[in-house]
Amino acid sequence: MSGKTLNALLTAGAVVLAGMLLAWANAGLDNYSIRILNLIAINAILAVSLNLIYGFGGMFSLGHAGFMAIGAYTSALLVLGPEQKEMMWMLEDIVWPLSVIQIPFWASLLAGGLAAALFSLVIALPVLRLGGDYLGIATLGFAEIIRVLITNSASVTNGSLGIKGIPPHATLYVNYACLGLALYCVVRLLSSNFGNVIKAVRDDEVAARAMGIDTFRYRVLAFCLGAFFAGIGGALQGNLITTIDPKMFNFLLTFNILMIVVAGGLGSITGSVIGSVIITFMLEWLRFADSPFEALGVTIPGVPGMRMVVFALALLALILYRREGIMGMHEFRWEWLFSRRRKKP
């Protein structure tokens, strides 16, 4: 029991420390660094949500960009004021209820998550009967359908013009608070017996059914929960860059998140967080490769896209030498930190 209280205290301490670090970063860092920190938080939310679906639920889903698009659009449409919307919708006039509604930012975030979850429920019912690669293809198709729908329903979404001037509500604090909440929810659920059950469904569906588990229901549940957090992640991203358009939510976005999840470790929340830190940071840091630089005495001319080559090589190395990702299926534990510390002296 004392071990548990100690862990709770340590976690509380870590949260306070993280808050202090954020306050320091917010005051002392330049805009570019803060932007990277923001992206890390949002990517971590997205990676954790995909991990819930793919890593823990065992459902190979490539629909994340679609869920993000729904979240981002729902939030943007609800948070903007009526005058702004009237001005921006040039192709067609905006439809009635949306033209007058304006709700607070936090409520729009929640609405974005719920809209994504609702949509995921609609596609889960037919699609989750599929398994493996087929599910991947079906969800990928649905994400594309969402994109096309958004492009073509100009009276709701302003079509291909996108939405601009979204108020920049997604500050450093907001993003990390959302990450904290998402982590709390996911970790708490997975450490309850629900976590054992969802992993059981992933590992052996037949045995899980014999144990009285309605496996389809649990798969739908995990899928919708993942979509919910993906919707919130998308909403945050829209509020961070203040402009969204349908082209943003293409397959590449899903691919980036999938990369974080696989690199971090399928079935590890810690891995997803670490993965999003490393990969978000690396994608920025590697920008030097796009400009001319000197390596081993050879001058390499600036080739645009060079950083993606370097990045792909790094990923290749990771997959070759550590296929299970950075964390495998393990999670961070305080005991784990301290038993190591004890061994050192």
Partner: peptide, 25 residues
């Protein structure tokens, strides 16, 4: 309740976790 001819345990989970899944129903 049943068992299987070719054992079907949740291999990645610990022994206790396996039994906890059974208790979930």
């Amino acid at each position: 309740a049943r068992t299987f001819q070719n054992i079907r345990l949740f291999g990645n989970a610990t022994a206790v976790e396996n039994v906890m899944v059974g208790g979930h129903v």
